[in-house]
Design a protein around this nucleic acid. Structure first.
Length: 301
DNA sequence: CGCCAGGCTTAGG
DNA sequence: CCTAAGCATGGC
């Protein structure tokens, strides 16, 4: 057991983050109970269970099954900062949002919500591919089946905590085996192919992080089969934390805008382009808050 | 049966 | 660059 503490950013609300994480979907890669997050992560190649809670205005992290060295602690702190986007100062976003018809109610309702991400690029891309064009409940169901079949896990206090399957493991899956988990044949192909690219180090987060412009990251991602612009923008938003990333064709975004503005029909691409002009530079956060608005309570503001 | 769900690929302008 | 068609799967 090792404890460490992180100071949250100025604009931050742990409870809003907890609520988002626990907003009604069955995510198999963390657990929430008693205002605490439990998540398995890899430290020095070894699965470790950490808990994250909030006390005395600090984020408190505890490793539950391993004593952490000084370097381990730094790694875990960096991991959590990245996961919860704690190095982003939201002042500028909030200032813009305050003057925006669509966003101003949302930043007051969900004040302090941050971009909870997916640190691992392979996981982010697989998850985005799994979620393409199907309802989210079903997407989480297939993700659980996949993770429980191919992912490592830690047993702790009578529960299993899972890690996302590695590219190495997934690259050896067959289309048939994934179809049994209710993947479509195409998605199975895309994910197995993607796993091969990661396994052969033809693609990595580190390599893409060095690219100078978001467009070059986007173009590299889109060149991979199964990754279109929605998936690329999703990964840029959730994994690279690029603030201007924007899955503009997202059907959830369309529904959120329709609901917020009480439109009869979903807004067209042109309407969304127009509405999103003021968000320039913060499109990813605008999308996050609109997605958040789709989950109860406070379905409409 | 029909329509929808946090789309993608391919073919053809 | 843009549009349309075809594809694929489960939930309601």
């Amino acid at each position: 057991m090792t404890n460490l503490f992180i100071n949250p950013p100025k604009i931050f609300c742990f409870n809003e983050c907890l609520w988002f994480l626990d907003r009604g979907f069955d995510d198999c890669l963390y657990n929430i109970s008693d205002h605490t997050i439990y998540k398995a992560m890899l430290i020095d190649g070894e699965p470790v269970l950490i808990q994250i809670c909030y006390a005395d205005n600090k984020i408190q992290i505890t490793s539950l099954n391993k004593t952490l060295t000084h370097n381990n602690k730094q790694y875990v702190a960096a991991y959590v900062k990245e996961w919860l986007d704690l190095d982003t100062d939201l002042s500028e976003f909030y200032q813009m949002a305050k003057q925006n018809e669509l966003l101003s109610p949302l930043i007051s309702c969900y004040h302090g919500l941050t971009m909870i991400g997916i640190n691992d690029l392979f996981e982010a891309l697989c998850w985005a591919i799994m979620g393409q064009q199907i309802n989210l409940n079903f997407a989480y169901k297939t993700k659980r089946a996949f993770v429980e079949k191919y992912g490592e896990s830690i047993h702790f206090n009578g529960k299993q905590f899972y890690l996302f399957p590695t590219p190495e493991k997934v690259s050896k899956c067959t289309v048939e085996s994934l179809k049994q988990l209710q993947f479509s044949a195409n998605k199975a192909k895309y994910i197995i192919n993607l796993a091969g690219l990661f396994n052969n180090e033809e693609i990595s987060k580190r390599q893409l992080s060095h690219l100078k412009y978001p467009d070059s990251i986007r173009n590299t991602l889109i060149s991979i089969k199964g990754i279109g612009s929605w998936t690329a923008e999703y990964a840029m938003m959730k994994c690279f934390k690029i603030k201007s990333a924007f899955p503009i064709q997202d059907v959830g975004l369309q529904n959120a805008i329709k609901q917020q503005l009480r439109l009869q029909e979903k807004p067209s691409l042109e309407e969304i382009k127009h509405l999103s002009k003021p968000w320039s530079g913060w499109e990813s956060y605008a999308t996050l808050y609109l997605w958040r608005s789709l989950s109860s309570p406070s379905n409409t503001v």
